[in-house]
């Protein structure tokens, strides 16, 4: 983990009020600067197997394999972001392998949302409907876009906001680990500021509480990640707790400005 960012984080996963299993899993490594939430699905206990494999494989890949070297081929994303993407792809392959070896685990899958701090940025990778929010100066910003049928139809303007809110097929996701060998991972890179808060969660939280309720908790208690996470969990359970609930809150205490402050293009536009 880069010493440029100092942060505190707290994560919790909970079965909720209705389900018989907790199929979510979370991973936090403060020293390496990464956080992951996975929301598993599949019969029997296969969902929790899939999410657990995802967390383990991502941790293993980030710890033991080298960051890809910068190259012209992947100039779009930084090597750190590609490293995170590769970790998710490795996890996908591991889940498919495990499913092949056990009939009861056929068709198991999981969502993943992962973030890792690097220099003064955060690399973000996600698949499915688990989300990453950033709370900055009182404003809650959902950085990830759900891979759900509802969101897809909204984007294509086949649904109005009204239709999307009332849709009965909210539970249909269009991407997940464990479905196919080929996996498209959405990637983002964002600048990090001191006092930023990051919230990773499964839909057991975002499906129970709206943005206003989440903002209220973060603005009041965000500086204490454990307090904020426990309060969000309690509110989601009080609202019905219809699904498993996973929450990780990251509070950035300090970003040390590096040499990373000039135009990274060799542009003479600004002379």
């Amino acid at each position: 983990m880069d010493e440029n960012i100092r942060f505190r984080a707290f994560g919790i996963t909970d079965i909720g009020q209705v389900r018989e299993h907790n199929e979510d899993a979370i991973g936090l490594a403060i020293d390496q600067g990464y956080m992951v939430v996975a929301d598993g699905m599949g019969g029997h206990n296969a969902g929790e197997v899939a999410s657990a494999i995802a967390i383990d494989e991502i941790a293993h890949h980030l710890s033991f394999s080298d960051c890809p070297a910068p190259s012209a081929d992947n100039a779009v994303y930084s090597p750190q972001t590609l490293h995170l993407r590769d970790a998710v792809i490795v996890a996908n392959a591991a889940i498919l392998d495990a499913a092949k070896q056990d009939d009861a685990r056929q068709g198991m899958g999981t969502t993943v949302v992962a973030m890792q701090f690097t220099a003064n940025r955060v690399a973000i990778a996600h698949v499915g409907d688990s989300r990453l929010y950033r709370f900055r100066e009182g404003f809650l910003d959902q950085l990830t876009t759900d891979h759900t049928l509802v969101q897809e139809w909204l984007t294509r303007k086949l649904y109005t906001q009204e239709e999307a809110r009332n849709a009965k097929n909210k539970n249909v996701i269009t991407r997940a680990l464990g479905l196919l060998e080929e996996l498209e991972v959405d990637l983002l890179e964002e600048l990090v500021r001191s006092q930023d808060l990051y919230l990773l969660c499964s839909d057991g939280l975002s499906g129970m509480l709206d943005d206003t309720e989440i903002s209220k908790v973060l603005s009041k208690h965000g500086q204490e990640p454990e307090t904020a996470a426990m309060l969000l969990l309690k509110l989601a359970n009080m609202a019905g707790g219809k699904d498993n609930i996973s929450i990780i809150i990251v509070c950035v205490d300090e970003v040390v400005a590096g040499q990373d402050d000039a135009s990274d293009e060799t542009l003479d536009w600004f002379d």
Binding site: V76, T155, D186, L188, S263, E265
Partner: peptide, 22 residues
């Protein structure tokens, strides 16, 4: 085309343009 492009001149003003999918 990049996930993030930094623009400007150190000491005067620096900004970034980030891509979130579309």
């Amino acid at each position: 085309s990049k996930a993030q492009t930094k623009l400007g001149k150190a000491g005067l003003q620096v900004a970034a343009i980030s891509r979130r999918q579309q």
